[in-house]
């Protein structure tokens, strides 16, 4: 069965297709590995697990980085 489902990514609906692995999502977004942190359904996913964790329909994913602030 082809992979095609919706997740919520940073508060917006997002379509996952072809690759359900978390690493696929991060690489697809061209994010720099050392600069971001990821939560799935409020659980932090350590970098070492990005390749083994797969996304499921309806997952709530947060990807954060650092921005200017005091």
């Amino acid at each position: 069965m082809p992979i095609d489902f919706q997740i919520t990514l940073n508060g917006e609906p997002y379509a996952v297709n072809g690759d359900a692995r978390l690493i696929g999502l991060i690489e697809g977004l061209k994010l720099k590995r050392g600069r971001v942190a990821v939560e799935i359904n409020r659980e932090i996913v350590p970098k070492a697990q990005w390749s083994s964790v797969t996304l499921a329909p309806g997952d709530i994913v947060e990807i954060v980085n650092f921005v200017g602030g005091g």
Partner: peptide, 19 residues
């Protein structure tokens, strides 16, 4: 230096990063 933690810009991932 202090920084804030915010959602990454999904629509423009090529945008420059503070770091």
């Amino acid at each position: 230096v202090t920084v804030a933690v915010r959602r990454v810009n999904i629509t423009d991932p090529n945008k420059e990063n503070l770091l």
